[in-house]
């Protein structure tokens, strides 16, 4: 994996730690309800709540420690106005992966409704245009990537995909061809 991760902002990290701590405490609070007692019996070491309880206590402890460390650091070195501005920008920057994941979700929806080949082609082309790879050479590379994926996964590995409804409108020979390869 690449090592190109942006440097974190202390306030942004504080917010993130706060969210993690809140989720961890919430999950721990639910332990009684979320781990039923069941019908069998056994010693204390077989209680269903034991393993998740142990993991969640560790999680809560580590998150609270990290949160405390962040708060102490911020009190010792109060954030500047620039750091606040930077934090706002960075938190808004969380929307960037959400935008990409929304496209990914749409790709999933399209795969079910228009078929794997067309959905992949549309997704690849849209992402390339969206990220600035819009020269004919890159678009051709995108088309080649789509064909390669179909060849590897649908033809080579025989991965089954649900066929969209409109394939049924095609003549039988074409329909089975579309279902098998596209």
């Amino acid at each position: 994996m690449s090592d190109e991760t942006p440097e974190a902002n202390r306030l942004e990290s504080l917010l993130l730690n706060g969210i993690f701590a809140l989720v961890a405490v919430g999950l721990l609070a639910l332990i009684g309800k979320a781990t039923g007692r069941g019908v069998a019996s056994g010693g204390w070491w077989t209680r269903p709540a034991l393993a998740p309880g142990f993991a969640l206590v560790l999680l809560v402890g580590a998150n609270i420690f990290t949160l405390g460390r962040a708060i102490v650091d911020l009190r010792a070195r109060p954030p500047s106005a620039e750091e606040w501005r930077d934090a706002r920008t960075r938190v808004l920057g969380w929307l960037r992966p959400l935008e990409l994941l929304a496209y990914f979700g749409l790709y999933l929806w399209l795969t079910i409704h228009i078929g794997y080949f067309l959905a992949t082609f549309a997704f690849v082309m849209w992402l390339m245009l969206r990220t600035g790879l819009n020269s004919p050479r890159w678009l051709l590379a995108g088309a080649a990537l789509t064909v390669a994926l179909v060849l590897i996964f649908r033809v080579g590995l025989g991965v089954w995909m649900p066929s969209p409804g409109y394939y049924d409108a095609a003549p039988e020979a074409v329909r089975s061809y579309l279902i098998r390869w596209f």
């Binding site: 999950l27 639910l30 979320a34 781990t35 039923g36 007692r37 069941g38 019908v39 069998a40 056994g42 077989t46 209680r47 269903p48 709540a49 393993a51 998740p52 142990f54 993991a55 969640l56 560790l58 999680l59 580590a62």
Partner: peptide, 21 residues
């Protein structure tokens, strides 16, 4: 690690035939 351990406990639990999270 604790998060991963917690994720591992989700689902059916065999000893008590119950569910977790």
């Amino acid at each position: 690690l604790a998060f991963g351990l917690f994720l591992a406990t989700i689902g059916l639990e065999t000893a008590y035939a119950t569910q977790r999270y």
